[in-house]
Write a protein that binds this DNA or RNA. Sequence first.
RNA 1: GUGCCCGUAGCUCAGCUGGAUAGAGCGUCAGACUCCGACUCUGAAGGCCACAGGUUCGAACCCUGCCGGGCAUACCA
Length: 574
Amino acid sequence: MDMKQSLAELIAQAIESCYAGVPELPTVADISGYLEIPPEKEMGDYAFPCFKLSRALHKGPPQIAGMLATAIDAPNLCEAKQQGGYLNFFLHRSNFAQQSLNAVLDAGDRYGASDVGANKTICLDFSSINIAKRFHIGHLSTTMIGQSLRRIYTFLGYQTVAINYLGDWGTQFGKLLCAYQRWGNQAEVERDGVEALTRLYVRFHEEAESDPALEDEGRKWFKAIEDGDAEAVRLFTLFKELTLRDTQRVYDMLGVTFDSYNGEAFFNDKMGRVIDELTQKKLLTVSEGASIVDLDEEHTGMPPCLVLKKDGATLYATRDIAAALWRMDEYHFDKCLYVVAYQQDLHFRQWFKVIEKMGYEWAKDLVHVAFGMISYEGQSLSTRKGHVVFLEELLLSAKEKALKIIEEKSPNLENKDEIARQVGIGAVIYADLQNNRIKDIDFSWDRALSFEGETGPYVQYTHARCCSVLRRAAELDPAEPEYAALEDDYAQELLRQLSRFPAAVREAAERYEPSIMTRTVTELCKAYNKFYYENRILDAESGVREARVRLTTAVRQTIKTGLYLIGMEAPERM
RNA sequence: GUGCCCGUAGCUCAGCUGGAUAGAGCGUCAGACUCCGACUCUGAAGGCCACAGGUUCGAACCCUGCCGGGCAUACCA
């Protein structure tokens, strides 16, 4: 049931009957687009601004609203009133309650889902960790935004491909091998994993300052990897496995999974095609010794895209282009999203343009889903300087804090450890996805571990509260619901929040913006807590109770779905 | 210099793509548990929506300019 659609049809009929024959009347779709939700309850549930019709009808908006108000007669759906230039709709409260509740309860955990994405594929390139680097808070946003978008698109019926485009190629790995040969040993790296690799890498840079010859040695080792030297490849493969092993612990805590780990190394032998095609399409020119694609012919203001270095080596744009071509062949994606920080905006605009110039119309389906920078105490993160917060450390702290609160407030809870994990990590995820992704974040322990106000635990608490009510309700005799019991303002506001949920999912997908889900779920929880405070549920008269229980069931279900879509778990007790 | 992004309450941020008196959380102050989970709820104080023009019946939102900040700007990724 789509309320906007129903109202729009009603309005269209009214316009037709009042102003038959007038040219340029709006269509039902236009009207549906104009409909808005008024800022105050006194103004009704929906509003149609008649200013839009003023010109076509040559009448004042209040006059039009008045005419339409008298022409509309649908007592079971709503009452229409003229207020200023607005035509305001007051929904028939108990019918609205019944319809909106049924919509949720009939759909169950599919409420808000859809099949608009059927037979369409979306590739999501996110998280994209670097080999030999520990997972830190700078990787959280790409990972959780990607994960959330993946769930949202899947929920809307799309086929999704989650790709962890590993940073597993480049001269830095030659340096690492060099450092390992000089100062490392297998037992140490196997024991300490990425930690040990990082130490080696840091030491390399320290020593290289006084011994520049190391740089050459590093390059030599990288060449060895490139040439397939057995020992170099063995070591590099080992480092890669160690990194993935360590990182997997974090992914497991966050509940994140991938369909592909094809990273830079995977595409290393697939770049000839890019060069061949660019040459054949006469897009490649040589400038200052490097091979470039000029992008300023159409005055885009963009600097050229470098495809080959002076020495003939490929660059990261080359690799990204190769990867995009390969993914199109492999997955036939309808969209390919790159969840990468906004620093790389120019880079993406450049190589997207190259794809376009190559004649691929699907260049328009490549989307850079940019997000803000994360800093720590006002400074940029730096593993090398030790100015960094590791994700594992953060998640474990969050869990610990949750456990402490649980011990205090719910000492008899079963599975305290598991619940603490869900709550602590939920708090971190929620905080990460709370605001528009483009916002910069200055990480603070206080904020990341805050459990008060609009936070993850607040939403999870509301869910647990619903579950608690429903557990008790299950012991009582069922009854026929009396929807008239849901006519109060608190229940109506709650129903409105529920009815908006499906549109919120669609909008989150359209705007690649998980925070829309976070906020929608939060508003739903606020509305439920107010409703709960104002209305008795279990000890109400049976018909009333049943209606309120059904409402609680719908809320519980929708919170759970919403949390799932932002990558959070919904414990039933906490 | 040029390009992209961001300026909304003391702090962190929403604002449904142009609508009615600009909202929330934190913090501050004042309240509500003999009652279904107080990790909850209620109220108060707090605003030249950076600034100036323009378009419009109507602008925090669109256009132009300007100020402040971030990022990027050829052989790292």
